[in-house]
Design a protein around this nucleic acid. Structure first.
Length: 273
DNA sequence: CCCTATGTTCCCAA
DNA sequence: CTTGGGAACATAGG
């Protein structure tokens, strides 16, 4: 469900609500999750995001970080003034002024509590074939992308979505970015010129920033921290639009599988080189 | 029954 | 080592 713009939305909203607040209780409802003991009384020092992972640092002296990855169907919901629990609620964190619920029908979400500074992001860095993981809204440069990708022969969409290379881009935004940059999703990365990477860099930055302003994309069940739908679905040009006309050339948007993932593209605007 | 699903990881084959 | 394919995780919806 959540890609970078959705997780960034949750991150910003969490800051408004729980920053500096004290945890009253941390209740694990799904026994598959194991974490959260002894966190009562600690305050939330910071809320951050790394790729699609959320991290909450707690003030306590020995440095505790809560790491949460929502995977496919995880949601976070702020319950300010009611005690209603939605089905599939997997854990809740209570504060003096309300409650944070994690709801996850498919139970893929992962929760861990670790010593600050030791995150799964570090693990991913070590597993990364190029020794670096790029954050799209920070150290994201065409020259760096070109350097990372030029010796590989994988489809560019797979590259954009591989979290060991770039943190945070998923299936919706990968399709939208490649459409915006006039790049075929199957294009092998070693054939992309620095100029093409420049177009991909610019498309990525503008699309992700706009999606953040829109509080994400709701095509089915994404909701923000307060249960509201996002707005970016209004701006989708190819995702979930197979058969509909390309906004630029009117050709029918096509749908095909690439590495097992649904992929939407314009057969005319995004021809392979 | 069939198919699909905004994610990640692991195993296996070429 | 690289790449691609498939399954697994577990559930809901069309």
């Amino acid at each position: 469900m959540p890609e970078l713009p959705e997780v960034e939305t949750l991150c910003r909203q969490l800051k408004q609500v729980i920053l500096d607040k004290e945890i009253r209780s941390f209740e694990i409802i799904d026994s598959k999750l194991t974490a959260g003991e002894g966190l009562e009384g600690r305050r939330v020092l910071s809320v951050g995001r790394q790729g699609k992972a959320l991290e909450m640092k707690l003030d306590d002296g020995d440095g505790i970080t809560i790491l949460l990855h929502l995977r496919l169907t995880g949601r976070l919901l702020w319950q300010g003034d009611n005690n209603f629990s939605f089905p599939h609620t997997r854990f809740t964190i209570s504060f003096p002024h309300g409650r944070l619920d994690c709801i996850d029908p498919r139970r893929f979400a992962t929760l861990s509590v670790q010593k600050t500074g030791f995150s799964d992001f570090d693990d991913r860095l070590e597993a990364c074939p190029t020794g670096m993981v790029v954050e799209p809204l920070k150290d994201f440069y065409a020259s760096r992308l070109w350097e990372m990708a030029r010796r590989r022969k994988i489809p560019v969409k797979s590259f954009l979505m591989d979290q060991r290379f770039i943190a945070g881009i998923g299936n919706i935004y990968a399709s939208e970015i490649l459409y915006e940059a006039f790049v075929n999703p199957w294009q092998k990365t070693d054939l992309l010129s620095p100029a093409k990477w420049q177009e991909i860099e610019e498309a990525t930055t503008s699309i992700l920033n706009r999606a953040i302003v829109c509080r994400g994309t709701t095509v089915s069940d994404w909701r923000d921290l307060f249960g509201r739908k996002g707005e970016y679905q209004r701006y989708l040009k190819v995702y979930a639009r197979q058969g509909r006309p390309c906004p630029r050339c009117q050709a029918a948007i096509q749908y095909m599988h690439l590495s097992g993932r649904g992929t939407y593209f314009c057969p005319t605007c995004q021809k392979a080189d």
